[in-house]
Computed example of a mutant assay.
Amino acid sequence: MSHHFKEEPHNAITDSGIARVIPCKELDIGDPLKWLSLGLRDLFRAPLLTVFFGIIFAAIPWFITYLVTLTGWHLVILPAMVCFMLIGPFLAAGLYDVSWELEKGHKPSLWHSVKAIKRNAVNEWGFGIMLMVLMIFWLRVASMIHALYPSYLSDSLEELMPFLALGTVVGAIFTTIVFFLSAFTQPILMERKVDLGTAVLTSVNAVWLNKGPMFIWAAIIFTAVVFGFLTGFIGFIFLMPLIGYGTWHAYIDTIETKRERQYE
């Protein structure tokens, strides 16, 4: 599948002057399926690491749900689901490392994956804090929406509908913003010695200039998350690593390098 190199267009993102923006390639509409198939290949090439990371991914939402059951506040499920999607990119660093090692022709190891987070430590943690701030902000917004919901209404779907609709719209806007901010940020920070501002703006720019393919990719991720929840999180054991590996290949395909990558 051919990628078209194009002159980097000037837009509000590239002209902002906040940080440098690394150029991106123009993607084809079918690229997300290619990333998925490459991710699947990595999944079969590193089955033990896949299951290890997958179990962690499944354990987190299970724990959130367990807390919900303890507190009996079922309305926390939607905010928790979005929180999980927020923490995802940060946890995925280990998975990106597995794909990266396979690409270099190395044998991936757990220790190497765990060390991946330390490669650009200050900016990696900065990214984690940024996601955490967004997560706390989302929880505040969600609790405000919940506060608007009158306590005298019953829990019937009909009466919950306006509340759920508002929560869904706000959640969708929020998730879209986070997708722009974090689609490629983590892999950029892992592979390149750049600051957080450059990584985030590069990610926003790449998603903006490739809205079609990236919308399909976002829909694939969202479907995987929904399917994971519907299977009682069992699906996450395989789906989250698959999305993680796919994201690494998406990054390799999308963000330009000045020189061809040379792997020894």
Results as ranks from 00 to 15, higher is better:
Met1Gln: 12
His3Tyr: 12
Phe5Val: 06
Lys6Ala: 11
Lys6Cys: 01
His10Met: 12
Ser16Tyr: 11
Ser16Met: 09
Gly17Lys: 03
Arg20Ser: 06
Arg20Ile: 08
Val21Asn: 03
Lys25Leu: 10
Leu27Lys: 00
Ile29Pro: 00
Asp31Asn: 12
Leu33Pro: 00
Trp35Val: 02
Leu40Cys: 07
Asp42His: 08
Leu43Arg: 04
Arg45Gln: 15
Leu48Phe: 13
Val51Arg: 07
Ile55Gly: 03
Ile60Val: 14
Phe63Glu: 03
Leu67Glu: 11
Val68His: 03
Leu70Trp: 04
Gly72Cys: 04
Gly72Pro: 01
Gly72Arg: 00
Trp73Glu: 12
Ile77Ser: 06
Pro79Arg: 06
Pro79Met: 07
Val82Gly: 04
Phe84Ala: 00
Phe84Pro: 00
Leu86Ala: 08
Leu86His: 13
Gly88Thr: 12
Phe90Asn: 11
Phe90Leu: 13
Leu91Asp: 05
Leu91Ala: 14
Ala92Asp: 12
Ala93Glu: 07
Val98Pro: 04
Trp100Val: 04
Lys107Asp: 09
Pro108His: 09
Ser109His: 11
Trp111Leu: 15
Trp111Asn: 09
Ser113Arg: 04
Lys115Leu: 15
Lys115Asp: 11
Ala116Met: 06
Glu124Tyr: 13
Trp125Leu: 15
Ile129Met: 11
Leu134Cys: 11
Leu134Gly: 12
Ile136Leu: 15
Val141Ile: 15
Ala142His: 03
His146Lys: 10
Leu148Asp: 09
Tyr149Cys: 12
Leu153Arg: 12
Leu153Pro: 09
Ser154Leu: 10
Met161Gln: 14
Pro162Gln: 08
Phe163His: 12
Leu166Trp: 02
Thr168Ile: 13
Val170His: 06
Ala172Lys: 03
Phe174Tyr: 14
Phe174Cys: 06
Phe174Met: 05
Thr176Leu: 15
Phe179Gly: 05
Phe179Cys: 10
Ala183Pro: 01
Pro187Leu: 03
Glu191Arg: 14
Lys193Trp: 03
Val194Tyr: 13
Val194Thr: 15
Thr198His: 11
Ala199Asn: 08
Ser203Leu: 07
Ser203Lys: 06
Val204Met: 08
Asn205Ile: 02
Val207Ala: 03
Asn210Ile: 07
Met214Asn: 06
Met214Trp: 05
Phe227Ile: 15
Phe229Pro: 02
Gly235Ile: 07
Ile237Phe: 04
Met240Ile: 08
Leu242Ser: 07
Gly244Pro: 10
Gly244Tyr: 02
Gly246Val: 11
Gly246Asp: 12
Thr247Phe: 01
Arg261Val: 15
